[in-house]
Design a protein around this nucleic acid. Structure first.
Lengths: 196, 196
DNA sequence: TCAGTTAATAGACTAAAGTCTCTCAAGCAA
DNA sequence: TTGCTTGAGAGACTTTAGTCTATTAACTGA
């Protein structure tokens, strides 16, 4: 964040790149838990301390590596074309699930790491979790504005329930597929009134 | 599971009890991550190997300890009295949240541990997660039978979304309070139709 | 009583995370 | 060129999880 003040040896960006590449490769090959920090540093051809100079934990490094490679997992869904919000939500979820499935085990490990490290939890939440939550909330507000969703509904709560549903599936080894996207979307948008 | 066949020194149940008590006390005092297995064994006045003889990991031990002490966290909600399913769900959730809040950090750590150990994940899921999921699903089916919930709704999906919502809150350090219980229940049961 | 069996204790050992220190490298400004 | 500053490399050190082994304790059946 803060600009470098004066001299000193510049950080070698190739070392960062090599570490991220090595981390991603080893984690995908062997699984997050099986890969030691020493192994990542060795694979990158870099001293272990250099890794610690840049990231606090393996989780920080791997999150950044996965993130960067996948373009931050799914862009904001476009709201302003001809599609209904319902269709946009469904397509968005399908897209998210595709990305999640690619690094599924790694993401589970990252969520796990966030539970044992408050600092990492905060940065993970800020850079990854919250933005996604707000995308859905914004989409649901838009749906209310367009009359596709009743004003009586609670977009923040629905967003929590949507994200919760696939976190729950993710962490409990359930399927993350188009069917889930459709089922969630249906539950959100098709609301026949209770019989009196 | 299998009965003991013949002789041999009997396992000392006092050791198990002492280990569970020590684990619970130390974890609540210092936090799950800060407590080492050696410290638990020492506090219980028992050899470290004795702990490993009974549980595979710290997570197995702590889960059992927490479980036992809290009577498995919330009983099946009674379906057969005068209350509506909506009220039963709300009260059930309030009750669950009260329990969850007591050992909140510990439960987060247990969920985290389940992500790095397939064996523990399976036993956690079987003994803890699935039963709760089925309670809610059964309640929602009952609501459909009684006409409190439309037949068009998907009880399994709703159950996933409900549990997901509070897992998500739990893991992301959000509030687990009566307000959440009410908001969830409202989202589930009050479904004004979309405007045409 | 004694042989067989299983549990408990104590301690060694490995692998890994994380911290620390020392030395060298690479840039800056006077 | 000479300090000054910061990064990089190498390796020591501590703590912990987890495994393994040898020894002793407690119980059963013949």
């Amino acid at each position: 964040m803060t600009e470098k003040v004066s001299g000193g040896r510049p950080t070698d960006e190739r070392a960062s790149a090599a570490l991220k590449a090595a981390a991603l490769q080893l984690v995908r090959e062997n699984g997050y838990e099986k890969v030691s920090i020493a192994a990542i540093a060795k694979e990158a051809g870099v001293a272990r301390q250099t890794l610690y100079n840049r990231w606090n934990t393996k989780a920080d490094l791997v999150l950044e590596a996965v993130f960067e490679e996948t373009g931050n997992y799914a862009a904001q869904p476009a709201l302003e074309d001809g599609k209904s919000c319902r269709v946009v939500l469904e397509e968005f979820l399908i897209n998210v699930f595709e990305h999640l499935n690619k690094d599924r085990d790694t993401l589970c490990s990252i969520i796990a790491a966030a539970q044992k490290d408050v600092t990492f939890n905060a940065s993970f939440h800020k850079s990854f979790v919250l933005p996604r939550e707000k995308m859905i909330t914004a989409l649901l507000h838009r749906a209310q504005d367009r009359g596709e969703l009743s004003r009586d509904r609670n977009p923040e709560m629905i967003s929590t329930m949507i994200h919760g549903a696939f976190w729950y599936r993710l962490l409990n080894r359930g399927a993350l597929d188009a069917r889930l996207a459709t089922d969630i979307t249906t539950e959100v948008f098709e609301r026949p009134p209770a019989k009196p």
